[in-house]
Design a protein around this nucleic acid. Structure first.
Length: 472
DNA sequence: TGGCGTTTAGC
DNA sequence: CTAAACGCC
């Protein structure tokens, strides 16, 4: 009898609830057996979920790395090819028959299609007499466990984070260990080809492998922690952890990050910086919890239903200019070009560009959300959707509709010397530190660089008026 | 995880 | 006169 671990959004051997549970169960006398693993490639489903080529390359590389790590532990990982989630269940059933599987273990995912798939799987396997075991492993605090005094999910981050922190203090969540090696000589399988439509990807942003992820975590935490709090909002400083690709694809868990950060705190690391970063881990949990409690946000629906009535502008040329980084607003263009060329964008700039699209251009946040997914190596439904709905003022703890970032002011504040703009918009490189934030204001605009496609002041007023009108 | 027009303290 | 501080959007 074999225990099968189905890896999906958890491409790691360390701190993996499903893996450790399968290994433990398999070594108990009453249900002893072997442990196998599988990963199902569903390129058509990835396409439908707007996965980026960068993310597909990352996932394939880390699926291969996982197969190699598991082989060292004596666990064979099979790659199964399907197109969509619906096909994957048939393939999985076939795989289970072939390998005499009695139990399948996996960690939960919370997108609506993933949930439907897992529900269908349980239904199907129940009929076959195969056991399905699922684990709440994606968050630090299990989804459903962080509720208000009234037993309701939180809709505002700050009270959520207070409850989350006290939960952490009480539960002291510790990462699961890597399971002990089982004795078997295994040659790992390997995926060598990338599916059509995902071939063209930017160069890898971070190194491949679980070890590389942990090395980067250690490096980040060993740096001067106070710099994170002071510098993280300045895109030119590269002061962020750059762990998001690993987190988004489960190479690293939030629990591992939190545990390492708490250890750094105990060793006397700069408390403000580390606490600020722990807050980001809480944000990640908050958005996953929100996705769990409100499946509609993964069905192209707004968290705040009343905002569904907004009449967004026809995207047309403005959307194209935004996507390609030709809006005439230097910081927005620099950010979009960074995204297009690297598959990653600095967090502050995600807010600035999202706010510009949804408030100044008044284009539907869903279009921006999908475009980000189609480019980001760290595209993660819960965080990406949460961030977009925050920016668009349609989400949980949303930015008040009248709080509209002025991208030029943000530029002056967070890229004061224009270093980030100069890197990504080279045609503006020669402008001085004042003019570079808004070249259209006085003087000659360097050749080829567009004039702003929208009036910031006017469009801001119009957006506020449209939100105001919702209340009547 | 603001912006902006207005008021007001302080020089 | 200028730059915080204020209050509304």
């Amino acid at each position: 009898m074999t225990h099968l671990v189905w890896f999906r959004n958890d491409l790691r051997t360390a701190d993996n609830a499903a893996l450790i549970a399968a290994c433990k169960t398999a070594s108990q006398p009453d249900s002893a057996g072997g442990v196998r693993a599988c990963f199902i490639l569903t390129p058509a489903q990835w396409q439908e979920h707007d996965w980026s080529p960068a993310r597909v390359h990352f996932v394939i590389a880390h699926a291969n790395a996982l197969a190699a790590e598991l082989a060292k532990l004596g666990i064979p990982l099979s790659f199964i090819y399907a197109q969509r989630f619906s096909d994957s269940l048939t393939a999985l059933e076939h795989h289970c028959r072939q390998h005499d599987v009695c139990q399948i273990h996996f960690n939960e995912e919370y997108g609506v299609n993933e949930r439907r798939r897992d529900k269908a799987l349980k239904h199907r396997f129940d009929k076959l007499g195969l056991a399905t075991r699922k684990y709440r492993d994606q968050t630090v605090a299990p989804v459903g466990d962080i509720l208000t005094g009234q037993g309701q999910p939180y809709s505002v981050f700050t009270p959520f984070s207070r409850r989350w922190r006290s939960w952490v203090e009480e539960a002291l969540p510790a990462p699961h260990p890597v399971p002990p090696p089982r004795h078997a000589d295994i040659k790992p399988e390997r995926i060598t080809d990338i599916s059509e439509g995902f071939k063209e990807a930017p160069p890898a942003l971070v190194e491949t492998g679980e070890d590389a992820a942990h090395a980067q975590l250690e490096r980040f935490l060993s740096e001067d922690g106070s710099a994170y709090k002071e510098q993280r909002d300045f895109p030119a400083f590269n002061a962020t952890s750059l762990l998001s690709p690993y987190l988004a694809n489960g190479v690293l868990s939030g629990r591992q990050c939190l545990s390492a950060a708490r250890q750094a705190l105990a060793m006397g690391g700069a408390p403000e910086g580390l606490q600020t970063w722990i807050n980001e881990i809480a944000w990640r949990d908050f958005y996953i919890h929100t996705l769990y409690h409100y499946p509609r946000v993964s069905m192209h629906r707004a968290y705040k239903p009343e905002t569904e009535a907004l009449q967004w502008n026809d995207p047309k040329d403005h959307f194209e200019a935004w996507k390609t980084g030709n809006t005439g607003i230097p910081l927005v263009d620099a950010a979009m070009r960074q995204l297009n060329q690297t598959g990653w964008m600095h967090n502050r700039l995600r807010m600035v560009t999202a706010m510009f699209l949804t408030k100044n251009l008044f284009i539907d946040w869903r279009l921006g959300e999908a475009y980000f997914m189609s480019k980001l190596v760290d595209g993660f439904l819960a965080s990406n959707n949460g961030g977009w709905q925050w920016s668009a003022s349609t989400g949980t703890d949303a930015a008040p509709y009248f709080r509209v970032f002025n991208p030029v002011t943000q530029s002056e504040r967070f890229d004061p010397k224009g270093e980030f703009i100069r890197e990504w918009v080279p045609e503006l490189a020669k402008l001085d530190n004042k003019r570079i934030h808004d070249p259209s204001k006085g003087g000659v605009i360097p050749g080829g660089y567009p004039r702003p496609i929208v009036d910031l002041k006017e469009s801001r007023k119009e957006a506020i008026a449209k939100f105001q009108a919702l209340k009547n």
